[in-house]
Simulated assay, not measured.
Amino acid sequence: MTTQQVLVGLDGSPQSEAAAMWAAQEAHRFGAALRLLHVWPWLSGAEAERQARPDDLRPAALDALARVADRIRTAHPDLTVETAVRGDDPVDGLVAEAQGQRMLVLGSRGLGGFAGLLVGSVSLAVAARASVPTVLVREAQPLPRTDTAPVREVVVGLDSCEPDEAVLEFAFTQAERRGARLRAVHGWEPAPAWAFGSMMPPPMDLPDQEGTETALLSEHLAPLRAGHPGVEVVEDVRIGGAANAVLDASAGAELVVIGRRERRHRIGMLLGPVAHAVLHHSTAPVAVVPHP
């Protein structure tokens, strides 16, 4: 059994408990231990003197974690489940605890009355900073894609010009372990033409452009297909932009995989527009995989 763990951030919400159950299946699938973690901010100075000491929260947090752990052990008797609490800023604590683990799993909650926005501020901030793949899971999971029979799919979104091997390897491994088909999605926009200071309609050679995009996608997927010969792959090239392409393809998917470029500073937006859109609007679990 690997020494890496699947780490889950729990805050007592239904979304985080759903994330814990999803993570338990993931840990069982990969032969990893599962670690349930609750993080809360420390009190300090005069404020700490006026309120209950932070240590007083530890027993209650451990009891809540123990209840979730018992449910998981009932469903997966052979799974090693650990519980822990940490006094820290939730984002800082989760990012620190995730280092060196197989993955971090968090619940994805909606924002107020905006039904289309499915990720909260803590989950979004952690996904932007964590050094390991971070999966955001909704409380209600979508039904699998169905035609004449259920088709299990993992969807990975990629740029045919700058694909990253770490993102593709994660997606292929997920599909392989799940016995699922991998749908590699590339959304692209035709380059506009300009004349006399105004934009003209795209040129009529769209089939040639699409053929070029498809060939690039196939070229980048070839080494991963060779390394995972048992994975069925669908190459899905769509006009209309990357975010829309991934979201359209993800309906009924078991998992959506997207990449995030690692940055060394904490100033500014750490997630690109495609990642933002997919995280906010996907109803399937979304894995954000950091890469150089």
Rank of each mutant, 00 (worst) to 15 (best):
M204S: 15
S218L: 08
G179K: 03
A215F: 05
F170A: 02
A191D: 13
P150G: 00
R181P: 00
A180H: 03
A180Y: 06
R183G: 00
A195M: 15
R225K: 14
D208A: 15
L224T: 10
E169R: 10
F196A: 14
E162S: 09
H186Q: 07
V167A: 07
A171I: 05
R177Q: 14
M200Q: 14
A149I: 05
T212N: 07
S160M: 01
A195G: 15
R178V: 00
V154N: 04
P150T: 15
W194Y: 15
P203F: 13
R138P: 04
L136Q: 02
Q141W: 09
L158D: 01
L224W: 06
M200H: 12
E210W: 03
V135M: 13
E162W: 07
S160Y: 03
A193S: 09
S160A: 14
R138F: 05
G227P: 03
H228D: 04
A149M: 13
A175P: 03
L224M: 14
L217E: 00
E165N: 08
V231Q: 08
M199N: 00
A175Q: 05
T146F: 12
T173D: 10
F170H: 15
H220G: 00
E210K: 08
S198G: 11
L182C: 05
L168D: 03
P207T: 05
H220R: 08
L182Q: 06
R138C: 06
V231C: 12
D205L: 11
V156E: 06
P229D: 13
D147P: 00
L221H: 07
P144T: 11
L143Q: 13
L136K: 02
D147I: 01
E139H: 11
T212D: 15
P202E: 10
V185D: 00
V233G: 08
A184S: 09
A171H: 04
T212L: 11
T134H: 12
G197I: 02
G187N: 02
L168G: 04
V231M: 12
E219Y: 11
M204Q: 12
G157A: 04
V185E: 01
Q141R: 12
D147Q: 06
L158V: 09
R177L: 12
E169I: 03
E139C: 10
E213I: 15
V167M: 07
D205W: 07
P192C: 07
P163C: 08
D205T: 11
P223H: 09
V185L: 03
E189D: 07
A140T: 13
P192Q: 09
M200T: 07
P150Y: 04
G211L: 07
V154L: 03
L158C: 01
R177D: 03
P201K: 05
T134G: 13
E219V: 08
V185F: 01
L206H: 06
S198Q: 14
V155N: 00
D208H: 08
P163D: 06
L216A: 15
T173E: 12
L143E: 13
L143D: 10
E219N: 07
D205K: 06
G197A: 02
L221P: 05
G157I: 04
W194P: 00
T148S: 12
E176C: 04
L136H: 02
A149P: 00
P223D: 10
T146S: 05
A222C: 01
D159Y: 10
A171P: 02
L158P: 00
F196S: 08
L224E: 05
E189R: 12
E176R: 09
T148H: 09
A184P: 01
F172R: 01
A226E: 13
R178L: 14
P223W: 11
A195S: 08
E176F: 02
L217V: 14
